[in-house]
């Protein structure tokens, strides 16, 4: 079980959180202007990287706030926590073969 530092409540057990998947996938401003393929890319397709990933997390059983986390999907180390709307921090991409 991961230990996740909620930016508001402090370090808490993973069981209090809900992972919202890949971060920085913004809802298109004008969905009607997108082709089926572009829309499908937004709704269905995710990268699932082995290495540095940026994820959305919600402190569901705490303050209910959403935030972003940068995590190594191999070691599970959490490398950064940052607010919704902020750009991803510049980190070593840690790609594993």
């Amino acid at each position: 079980m991961l230990l996740i530092a909620c930016p508001h409540c402090g370090p808490r057990a993973e069981s209090e959180f809900h992972c919202g998947g890949e971060a920085h996938i913004e809802r298109p401003k004008d969905p009607a202007s997108l082709s089926d393929a572009e829309w499908a890319e937004f709704v269905f397709l995710r990268d699932n990287i082995k290495g540095l990933v940026f994820e959305r997390w919600n402190h569901a059983h705490g303050c209910r706030r959403w935030f972003n986390a940068a995590r190594d999907s191999v070691t599970y180390e959490i490398l950064a926590i940052y607010p919704m709307g902020s750009p991803p921090p510049a980190l070593d991409p840690r790609r594993y073969v």
């Binding site: 809900h18 919202g20 919600n58 569901a60 209910r64 706030r65 959403w66 919704m84």
Partner: peptide, 13 residues
């Protein structure tokens, strides 16, 4: 509620 909070906090703050 989770669905609504998600959109409210992350897409339409």
């Amino acid at each position: 509620l989770g669905h609504l909070e998600d959109y409210l906090q992350t897409e339409w703050p």
